[in-house]
Design a protein around this nucleic acid. Structure first.
Length: 284
DNA sequence: ATGGCTGTTATCCG
DNA sequence: CCGGATAACAGCCA
């Protein structure tokens, strides 16, 4: 569930369940997710610590800890297939659990089938992050100036975490569609107006996704393809209206919801991009 | 069933 | 510095 909205919804879900609780035994199953922190160090830092708060920054989850007055921060990143959730301590940890720890009669699970994620005391990942798109720190003028410096396709720049934090492959396509900008447009050649439209579209797309995700009952432990897209996930009330879903992402060949033209798929920086050839400009 | 795809990012090249 | 390619990995799908 990796992009900003998913992490935000997860953060809101976990915060009231974790805050104030004391961490018991810590088990690190997949050591590579703890890199570059030594697993023994992580265990030592967590065991007996109180979780005092939870935060999100970009796609990172921040766990604020207090151990005998010593404050520390643990960060988690879900990579592509990470999941974090609570279960009963009497159940065995599920397959692909990377790290788990006890919280009284519950157990916190971080599961990650591909182990692209991280669970670490190393905060260096945060330093490279650009502004939070939903905060005042995200300034359209600065965003435009950053785009002007690059000759890469704008889609690739929107996913650049140092430019704006938290936008991944799905919402990059969605935001460009909303802004009416071709994903192949060269970043430095966009007009100021286009950059501002894009900044606004990023904000609104992410904000709406959070809203949508917060309103659903979710299965945070869910597995399998498509489950990470929580707003699509199962767990909708039975029967009734189907969610509208994405405007372009994963809709190759299907009609654009605005103009009916078939959505196209291209590959940029080795990732799929989806766009409408009519709504998003004839070409570059 | 075999090969191509997948939500991320660090790193290595030219 | 910039930008492209690849690797890390397991599972799903056609």
């Amino acid at each position: 569930m990796p992009e900003l909205p998913e992490v935000e919804v997860l953060c809101r879900h976990l915060a009231p369940r974790l805050c104030g609780r004391v961490i018991g035994d810590v088990v690190i199953v997949r050591e590579k997710v703890v890199r570059p922190t030594a697993p023994a160090d992580l265990r030592r830092a967590l065991s007996g610590a109180t979780i005092t708060g939870l935060d999100r920054r970009g796609k990172y989850l921040l766990f604020h800890l207090d151990r005998n007055g010593m404050e520390q921060c643990l960060i988690g990143h879900l990579g592509m297939t990470g999941r974090m959730f609570l279960q009963s301590a009497s159940e065995p940890a599920p397959k692909h659990t990377a790290v788990h720890f006890e919280l009284g009669r519950e157990r916190f699970i971080y599961r990650d089938t591909r182990c692209f994620g991280r669970f670490t005391l190393d905060l260096s990942g945060l330093e490279k992050l650009g502004p939070e798109p939903l905060s005042e720190h995200f300034r359209p003028e600065a965003f435009r100036d950053a785009l002007r410096k690059s000759r890469q396709p704008v889609k690739v720049k929107v996913m650049d975490q140092s430019l704006v934090a938290g936008v991944g492959n799905i919402y990059a396509s969605e935001a460009l569609h909303r802004a009416g900008i071709s994903p192949r447009a060269v970043a430095c050649r966009l007009s100021s107006a286009a950059c501002y439209r894009l900044a606004a579209a990023i904000r609104s797309i992410l904000g709406e996704a959070i809203e949508k995700g917060s309103g659903m009952s979710l299965d945070f432990s869910g597995d399998g393809a498509g489950d990470g897209f929580f707003y699509y996930g199962r767990s909708e009330s039975p029967g009734e209206e189907r969610e509208e879903g994405f405007r372009v992402y994963d809709r190759e060949g299907e009609p654009c919801r605005t103009c009916e033209k078939p959505i196209r798929r291209i590959v940029q920086a080795a990732r799929s991009t989806f766009y409408c050839p009519r709504c998003q400009g004839a070409g570059e």
